[in-house]
Amino acid sequence: MSALLDSVLATAVPLDRALLLAAVLFSIGLAGVTSRRNVLIMLLSVEIMLNAANLALVTFSKVHGDPTGQVFVFFAMTVAAAEVAVGLAIVIAVYRLRRTTDVGEVAALHEIDYGPVRYPQLEGQPVHHHGSSGNGDGDGDAGETGGQPAVASEEAHG
């Protein structure tokens, strides 16, 4: 067993190959995030980019013969985990609203931009209508009925 381990360690990957792999991973991630339309795959692509950076860090620490770089990778991985957690939470919330993971369709949420942004009506708070608020806002109103519960009214009065 130890002989096997020794032989594996002796034929370790050359450092320039490891850096090349990091560069390839980074490019794959960048290509994915710019060309794919699926929100999940975009998130995965970003994580691949981050892992390319981690791989580079490990390689650099090997160059210096200094384990600090590898310790930093653990921090970077923790950070990446937090990022994925937040990213997935948002993706799930988006999916529940739209039943799609296509970034173009999700971005339709943005189209309401061109009209005035009206916030959901709050109890005891008159909503002021303007001459210009009729068009472009319909999508938002339609979405409003299906989703989140309104804020509890006793809280709204402050």
Binding site: A52, V91, V94, L109, H110, G140
Partner: peptide, 21 residues
């Protein structure tokens, strides 16, 4: 409370993560 916030947050997450990388 606006649901557009979700997509704005997602867009920010992707671009921000690329920046951080």
């Amino acid at each position: 409370r606006r649901r557009e916030g979700l997509f704005a947050g997602y867009q920010y997450l992707i671009l921000g993560s690329i920046g951080a990388t």
